[in-house]
């Protein structure tokens, strides 16, 4: 399985990482090499094998319905690159 430039551009956009066109070929080669490497898995017979969901063998634990967090705006916005009146601020989005 090898990746072409267009696919690199597509997944780069999906991942929201700008990849200049000049880098796409090189990246396509690198990613194709990795895909060639992982293609070995095709040799493994996995008929009827359940995919691993967790290596931990215990039940999912539940929390009680108790409010024990929040209520501290400063704590959640203090690291924001841009904030106004407790809001995070981003470039305008058109819906």
């Amino acid at each position: 399985m090898s990746l072409d430039k267009a696919t690199v551009a597509k997944i780069a956009h999906l991942a929201r990482i700008k990849v200049p066109e000049a880098d796409q070929d090189h990246l396509a080669q690198e990613l194709s090499a990795i895909l060639a490497f992982v293609a070995q898995l095709d040799e493994v017979d996995t008929e009827g094998v359940a995919p691993m969901t967790s290596v931990v063998e215990h039940a999912l634990r539940w929390r009680d319905d108790v409010i024990d967090d929040g209520g501290n705006v400063e704590r959640v916005v203090s690291n924001a690159p841009e904030q106004v009146a407790g809001f995070y601020v981003v470039p305008k989005v058109v819906e």
Partner: peptide, 11 residues
């Protein structure tokens, strides 16, 4: 989207 001409505010 209506708080600022070029920004979106997020809550």
């Amino acid at each position: 989207h209506d708080q600022h001409p070029s920004k979106t505010y997020v809550d």
